[in-house]
Write a protein that binds this DNA or RNA. Structure first.
Length: 523
DNA sequence: AAAAAAC
């Protein structure tokens, strides 16, 4: 065993930076060789024994110093990228994709696919989560929206599987919506191009064909699906799908899939976990937001859990300029919306509403405005949903009205504005919705309408906005469950006031609304 | 609290 192998063992997967620690390494190597020479000579010589001890001490000190220097460097890299990690024996982060080839045997063709896709440097979550999964570690990963989580689990899967094999599905990825499953599937296909993996998505056609049943040839490797489809196939007698060959189970948007209650995802997810019964199954849970429930579950059920957090947990991405807009009433929303359209905006824009019915209504209000607007929600047919997504991606639709269906994971290139037409139902939903813009380091903008009715949640959203570095009026942060804060008039700040609205006079502003009596704010 | 998720 040479010095570096020994070092690696002690560092528990630590990598060695030859450039940075070259001098220490040389000194160390020399010391080791001298030491060895002594070890193998006759032990009868006392002098030699004394020398041996000196050399051993030298070696110990040198080793300790090396470890220390190395750890300092690793700490610096983690701090610089805001990587927080909890767990035992955590491997070092990688700083380049090519290290993944040299250190972990990433397929060169995959590396080539990465660079053709313009991906040159790993993002913080990729730097730390990839080595962890490469070491077969189970993990809970939390990283901001648009920070590269999909790639962070896809690369280790492809490396782990090595090459196509006819053993049945060896990797499974679960997503909360069909749109997200389909996007992840596409990403995997693109990433593994030329390697020959059979990447499948569970859709109606594949389910009808019964092609994963007991009599199938098992010529497939990776499966992407929403949970209920899987459960449906698993429940059939005999089961139309076997997951006992699964070696990696990835739960994307994990907090969503842990949602409890009568119609939550949790039971479905439990059935999937149970079906992945192989002795070697490893599990990884990813999301931009993490709730205590999920963390608790992971601590109890995962093997030697490592949790990785990038930046602060449950925070909005900092590349989005966020704004709260008081619109007074329902009618005020529509007026403000028309105002945005009239003033001119840079498409594409995503507009979130709280229910399917509201999505339909808003669509009918806007369809005659002379802009390319469409709507998507779970009550539309899969064909319609697919068409809408592809038209929005291609730029044929400028304004897309949507429900929470599109709140998570969906990666539209270059969404310029996310409009929360209806107030989000929680801070977590807010974080995911506005995360459809400002992705991969690009800038974005999010505007959130609010009315009197939204006051109960205003404070928690205002806190998220403030934490992301956007200004919010102090009184919003001071809101308590029982409103008792007296608001100074100086806090009443008119954002938009358009006298052209005639009879439907509207005041659009950030202020305390109920205690504001400034007539200028009401025209 | 609504949405999503099978046929």
């Amino acid at each position: 065993m040479d010095a570096f192998d020994l070092f690696r063992k002690l560092g528990a997967g630590a990598k060695f930076d030859f450039k940075r620690f070259g001098k220490d390494a040389d000194r160390f190597k020399q010391g080791e060789m001298e030491g060895e020479g002594i070890l193998w000579t006759s032990s009868a010589d006392r002098k030699a024994k004394g020398l041996q001890k000196v050399e051993r001490d030298k070696e110990k000190i040198s080793m300790k110093r090396l470890k220390q220097l190395h750890q300092e460097k690793v700490n610096r890299v983690r701090a610089q990228h805001r990587i927080n990690v909890h767990g035992c024996d955590v491997p070092d982060p990688v700083c380049t994709f090519s290290e993944l080839q040299s250190e972990y045997g990433l397929n060169p063709r995959v590396l080539q696919n990465l660079s053709s896709a313009g991906l040159t440097t790993p993002t913080p979550i990729q730097m730390q989560a990839i080595p962890l999964m490469m070491h077969g570690r189970e993990l809970l990963a939390c990283a901001p929206t648009g920070s590269g989580k999909t790639l962070a689990f896809c690369l280790p899967l492809l490396t782990h599987l090595k090459q196509p094999a006819n053993l049945g599905f060896r990797a499974l990825i679960i997503s909360p919506t069909r749109e997200l499953a389909s996007q992840t599937h596409r990403e995997l296909v693109r990433l593994s191009e030329g390697v020959g993996f059979r990447v499948h998505i569970l859709d109606k056609a594949s389910m009808a064909a019964k092609k994963y049943g007991p009599s199938s040839n098992k010529k497939y490797d990776i499966l992407v699906s929403t949970p209920n489809r899987l459960v449906f196939l698993l429940k059939q007698d005999p089961p139309a799908l076997h997951l006992s060959s699964v070696e990696w189970l990835v739960v994307d948007e994990s907090d969503k899939l842990f949602e409890d209650g009568r119609s939550g995802f949790r039971d479905q997810l439990a059935a999937v976990f149970q079906a992945c019964s192989g002795p070697r199954v490893r599990r990884a849970l990813y999301s931009a937001t993490c709730v205590p429930d999920v963390e608790q579950w992971c601590r109890i059920n995962l093997d030697n859990l490592v949790s990785v957090n990038i930046g602060h947990r449950n925070s909005a991405v900092e590349t989005v300029e966020q704004e709260l807009l008081f619109v007074g009433t329902e009618n005020g929303k529509l007026l403000a919306m028309r105002d945005i359209i009239k003033k001119g905006f840079l498409p594409p824009m995503l507009v979130f509403v709280q229910s399917i019915e509201r999505a339909r209504e808003l669509f009918h209000e806007l369809v005659y405005e002379g802009i390319n607007v469409d709507v998507i929600h779970a009550d539309r047919t899969q064909q319609q949903r697919d068409n809408v997504i592809s038209s929005f991606r291609s730029g044929d639709i400028w304004v897309l009205i949507c429900t929470a269906l599109l709140a998570r994971g969906i990666d539209f290139k270059g969404v310029n504005l996310v409009l929360n037409y209806d107030f989000p139902t929680s801070a977590v939903e807010y974080i995911h919705r506005i995360g459809r813009t400002g992705r991969a380091g690009h800038t974005g903008r999010a505007v959130t309408f609010f009315t009197e009715d939204d006051k109960p949640l205003l404070r928690s959203i205002a806190n998220v906005i403030k934490q992301a570095g956007c200004p919010v009026p102090d009184y919003m942060l001071g809101f308590k469950k029982i409103h008792s804060v007296v608001v100074r008039e100086a806090d009443c700040h008119v954002i938009v006031f358009d006298p052209r609205h005639g009879q439907n006079k509207v005041c659009i502003r950030i202020c305390s609304f109920d205690s504001c009596n400034n007539p200028a704010h009401y025209a």
